[in-house]
Design a protein around this nucleic acid. Structure first.
Length: 788
DNA sequence: GAGCACTGC
C-alpha cells in the first residue's frame, strides 16, 4: 500500500483501494499491494477502479510487475474513444443483461470492451470465463495477440483464442477470442454455455449465418441463465433493430476515429462499369494528388481483365501526360499468397527525381471490404456491384449472382479511403440511384443459404421448434422445409423431426450433412479411409489450377490423375499422390495443383478422422486389388448423394432425377464418355446449368441404398424414372421368384425332413420289432433249454 | 468447352 501511496503516477489508485475495502465489508485486504484486483468487487466496478487496477504495480492476472511495453501501450489505450465511455458501459452492463454497442472503425471496441468485462466480472475469481466472437479466423487470432500484449500476458495463457484447427488456450484463460462458428460448436455439447459468464458478439452487423444463430441462441440462454451478460457490438447505425431484438436493450454509441471521405457520384448512369472504372482510375492518376487507388470489382476474370487494360492504357497516359509510374495489383482470395503480398508494396518512385509521383492501383473483390485492410488508400472507385450468394429452395441450389450492393456496403467501401488521411470515393452510379435503388442493408446470409447443416446443429442445440425460432430475420418457410426434408431423407431426423442416432453422428462432423452421411455409410462398405479423403477433398476450394497461359499443360497434368469412374475417384488419386510426394509444395506447382487447397484438405481429413474415431466409426479399407474396391467407394458416395443424381436421356441431355432440370456435365469433368447414371456434388448455375464433380453409378444402387427416397410413385415422369421402375419391377419379380423358390425349397425340405423322419421311424420301429422278436425268440429258446 | 464473392465449424 505504501508503494502505491508514494507513487504520484498512481494518484487515484489510493481511492480505488479504499472503495474496494468498503465493498469488501471492511475486511482487511492490505495484501492488495500485490494485486490491484483485490479492490474490485465482481459486477460492481467503476471506471476509476479499473483504471487504477491497470496502473497498479503488479498485474492482477499474473502477479508479475508490469513491463515498460505495457505502460507504453496503456497510454495509447487511454486515448481510444471507447475509453471515455468506460463508466457508461459499466453502468449499462451492471444494470442490464444485454447491451448493444455501436462503434465505428477505430473506436477500440474490439480490444477494450472485453477487457472492461474481464475487470468487471473477474473471471479468475468467479470461475467462469469471457468469450468474444469474431466472424473470421484471422481477426480472432490477431485481436487475441494484441489484447495479450495489452494485458501483459503470454498469448494462450490468460488471454487466448480458439479457431478451427487451432486451440490456443489454457486452464488459466479468462478471456477467449473465438470464431462464432467455434462457439456454436461448443454450444452443441454445452447447451447453456455454462463455462461463460459473458459473451461478447463482435461485428454483429455483418449478419453472418453463425452470428445470427448465435444471437438467437444467446437470447434463449439468457432467458434461462440470469447470471450471464451479453454484449452485442456492431458498426452500423442500424442499432434500433438490434436493441429491439434484444428485449429493448440499452445502446451505447462510441465515435470512431477515421478521416472524412468526400463522395462523388456520376451525373448519368454508366453503361459499362468496367470501362468507366478504368477511365476514372486513369483520370485520378492524371489529375489528383499522391495517394493509392482501390477499385472494387466482382470476380477474378474481371479483375485480371481490368489489370491488363490498366497496364496498357496506363503506359499511354504516362507517356503523353507526363504522369508518374503505376503499380497495378490484382487481389482476390484464390490468388496465391505471394501474389497477395504485392498489395502491401509501396507505390513506385518517380521516374526522375522530383518528377510526378508513382501510384499503386489495387483492383480487388470484396476481400478488401472487410477481410483485408490496405494502408495508404486515398481513392476508392466503387462501381456498386458484387457477387452474392443466392439460394433457390425450389431447385435446392446455391449460386453466385452479380448484384447491386447495399448502401451499408457502399459506405463500408468508401470508408476504406479514409483510414490514413482524408480521401475521396467515386461511385459509378448516380446519387439518385444510391438513394432509391440500393437496399439499406445486404440481406443477411441466413436468407440466402441452404440451411441443411444449420438445422441439424439447431436440433443438436436442443431447439426443436424451428418454425417459431426467434431469429432477427426469420428464414423462409420453404428453405426450412427443404432443410428438414433433406435431413429426413438422410435418416438424420425421424418422422417426428427428432434427431436420430445417425443424425447425432452426422452433426458431429463439421461438414455438409451429405458428406457426413457418406462417411458413416462407408463403414458398411469397408472403405471409411478412402471416403474420408474424398469428403475432405470436396470440402476445400477447387484443387485444379488452369492458368490462361498454360491451359493445355494443366489439362495434361490433370489427365494423369483421371480415373475412369469419375471425378470423385480422380480427387482420391490426387490426394493419394499428394500424400506420397516428398516435396508437396513443389509437386503441386509441377502438377498445376493448388497447394493451399491440398494442405487444407489434409487438415480437414485429420479433423474428420478424429471425429470418426471419437464416434466409434472404424477406419477401414478394402483390398486394393479387389474388383470391388472402387464400386464399394461409389456405393458409399451414393449413400450420401442419392438426392443429386442425373440421368442421360436418349436425346443426349442429362436430366436431374426428381427435379427434371436439364443440365450439362461440367467441361472440367473427366467423364467425357457420358455415363448413363451419375451422382454429382455441385449444381453450378451460370449461363447454363452444369453439374460438377460427377461419378458414374448403377441405377440399382439407388433402389438398394435409398429405397425410401426412390419411392417412384411420387416422381415426375422421365426416362430415368421408367428405367428405375423397370429395375424395381425386375427386382420385384426376382424377389418374388426368389421367395417362391425359397418357399418351395422350404416346403421340400420340410417334406423331405418329415419323410426322412417317417422312414427313420419306420426303420426304428421295424428294428425294434425285430429286436423284440429276436429277444422273444431268444428268451423262448433259453426257456426251452432251461426246461430241458 | 468453363470458372471460384467471401467466411466458417
Amino acid at each position: 500500500m505504501a508503494d502505491i501511496k508514494n507513487n504520484p503516477y498512481l494518484a487515484h489508485m489510493h481511492d480505488a483501494m479504499d472503495e474496494g475495502a468498503a465493498y469488501n465489508n471492511g475486511s482487511t485486504s492490505t495484501k492488495g499491494t500485490n494485486s490491484a484486483f483485490d479492490a474490485l468487487v465482481p459486477g460492481k466496478t467503476t471506471a476509476a477502479q479499473q483504471e487504477a487496477a491497470e496502473e497498479a504495480l503488479h498485474n492482477g492476472l499474473t502477479g508479475r510487475s508490469f513491463s515498460q511495453k505495457y505502460k507504453d501501450i496503456l497510454a495509447k489505450r487511454r486515448e481510444l474513444p471507447v475509453n471515455k465511455q468506460r463508466q457508461n458501459f459499466l453502468d449499462l452492463i451492471h444494470n442490464n443483461q444485454f447491451v448493444v454497442l455501436v462503434g465505428e472503425t477505430g473506436s477500440g471496441k474490439t480490444t477494450q470492451i472485453p477487457q472492461y468485462v474481464v475487470l468487471d466480472m473477474l473471471p479468475q475469481i468467479e470461475g467462469k470465463i469471457i468469450a468474444c466472437t469474431q466472424p473470421r479466423r484471422v481477426a480472432a487470432m490477431s485481436v487475441a495477440q494484441r489484447v495479450a500484449e495489452e494485458l501483459d500476458v503470454k498469448l494462450g495463457q490468460e488471454v487466448g483464442y480458439s479457431i478451427r484447427f487451432e486451440e490456443c488456450t489454457s486452464s488459466k484463460t479468462v478471456l477467449k477470442y473465438c470464431t462464432d462458428g467455434m462457439l456454436l460448436r461448443e454450444a452443441m455439447s454445452d447447451n447453456m454455455l455454462s463455462r461463460y459468464s459473458a459473451i461478447i458478439l463482435d461485428e454483429a452487423h455483418e449478419r453472418t449465418l453463425n452470428t445470427d444463430i448465435l444471437m438467437s441462441l444467446m437470447k434463449n440462454i439468457a432467458s434461462k441463465r440470469r447470471d450471464i451478460k451479453v454484449v452485442v457490438m456492431s458498426a452500423t447505425l442500424d442499432s434500433e433493430k438490434f436493441q429491439k431484438y434484444f428485449n429493448d436493450a440499452p445502446l451505447l454509441t462510441v465515435p470512431g476515429r477515421t478521416f472524412p471521405v468526400e463522395i462523388y457520384y456520376t451525373p448519368e448512369p454508366e453503361r459499362d462499369y468496367l470501362e468507366s472504372a478504368i477511365k476514372t482510375a486513369l483520370q485520378i492518376h492524371a489529375t489528383e494528388p499522391e495517394g493509392d487507388i482501390l477499385i472494387f470489382l466482382t470476380g477474378e476474370e474481371e479483375i485480371e481483365e481490368a489489370c491488363r487494360l490498366l497496364r496498357a492504357r496506363g503506359d499511354d497516359i504516362i507517356r503523353s501526360a507526363n504522369c508518374g509510374p503505376l503499380l497495378i495489383v490484382p487481389l482476390y482470395s484464390t490468388l496465391p499468397p505471394n501474389m497477395q503480398q504485392k498489395i502491401f508494396e509501396k507505390a513506385p518512385e518517380p521516374r526522375t527525381k522530383g518528377g510526378a509521383p508513382g501510384r499503386k492501383i489495387v483492383v480487388s473483390t470484396n476481400v478488401a471490404e472487410t477481410s483485408l485492410t490496405i494502408d495508404g488508400i486515398v481513392y476508392v472507385i466503387d462501381p456498386g456491384f458484387s457477387k452474392q450468394k443466392v439460394y433457390n429452395p425450389r431447385v435446392r441450389v446455391e449460386s453466385l449472382l452479380v448484384s447491386p450492393i447495399s448502401r451499408a456496403a457502399a459506405q463500408q467501401r468508401a470508408g476504406r479511403a479514409g483510414r490514413t488521411r482524408p480521401g475521396k470515393c467515386f461511385r459509378l452510379y448516380t446519387e439518385k440511384s444510391y438513394n432509391n435503388d440500393l437496399i439499406e442493408q445486404t440481406y443477411p446470409e441466413i436468407l440466402r443459404s441452404n440451411l441443411g447443416s444449420i438445422v441439424l446443429q439447431l436440433k443438436k442445440l436442443g431447439i426443436n421448434d424451428l418454425v417459431h425460432l426467434d431469429l432477427m430475420d426469420p428464414c423462409a418457410p420453404e428453405v426450412l422445409m427443404r432443410a428438414l426434408e433433406l435431413l429426413h431423407y438422410l435418416g438424420a431426423l425421424d418422422d417426428d423431426a427428432n434427431l436420430t442416432p445417425i443424425g447425432h453422428a452426422i452433426s458431429e462432423f463439421p461438414i455438409d450433412p451429405q458428406l457426413a452421411k457418406m462417411i458413416i455409410s462407408a463403414v458398411e462398405y469397408g472403405c471409411t479411409n478412402e471416403v474420408l479423403s474424398i469428403a475432405a477433398m470436396l470440402s476445400v476450394p477447387n484443387v485444379f489450377l488452369r492458368p490462361r497461359e498454360a491451359q493445355r499443360a494443366a489439362d495434361m497434368a490433370k489427365a494423369e490423375f483421371a480415373h475412369m469412374d469419375g471425378d470423385h475417384m480422380t480427387l482420391l488419386n490426387v490426394y493419394h499422390s499428394y500424400k506420397s510426394s516428398s516435396e508437396p509444395s513443389q509437386w503441386c506447382w509441377d502438377n498445376f495443383l493448388q497447394y493451399r487447397s491440398l494442405k487444407s484438405a489434409d487438415n480437414i481429413r485429420e479433423q474428420l478422422r478424429r471425429v470418426a474415431v471419437k464416434n466409434n466409426i472404424p477406419l477401414l479399407s478394402n483390398n486394393f486389388s479387389s474388383p470391388e474396391y472402387y464400386p464399394k467407394i461409389r456405393k458409399a458416395l451414393t449413400a450420401g448423394y442419392f438426392m443429386q443424381v442425373a440421368h442421360l436421356e436418349r436425346n443426349g441431355q442429362y436430366l436431374t432425377v426428381k427435379d427434371n432440370q436439364i443440365v450439362l456435365l461440367h467441361p472440367s469433368s473427366v467423364l467425357e464418355r457420358k455415363p448413363e447414371w451419375v451422382i454429382y456434388n455441385e449444381f453450378v448455375l451460370t449461363k447454363r446449368h452444369y453439374i460438377r464433380t460427377a461419378t458414374e453409378i448403377k441405377p440399382e444402387w439407388l433402389l438398394e441404398i435409398a429405397a425410401h427416397y426412390y419411392e417412384l410413385s411420387n416422381f415426375p415422369p422421365c426416362e430415368g424414372k421408367r428405367i428405375l421402375e423397370k429395375i424395381a419391377l425386375r427386382n420385384a419379380i426376382v424377389q418374388d421368384e426368389q421367395e417362391r423358390k425359397k418357399r418351395k425349397k422350404e416346403k421340400k425340405d420340410k417334406e423331405s425332413k418329415e419323410g426322412k423322419e417317417g422312414k427313420d421311424k419306420e426303420k426304428k420301429e421295424k428294428k425294434e420289432k425285430k429286436d423284440k422278436k429276436e429277444r422273444k425268440e431268444k428268451k423262448e429258446r433259453k426257456e426251452k433249454k432251461e426246461k430241458k
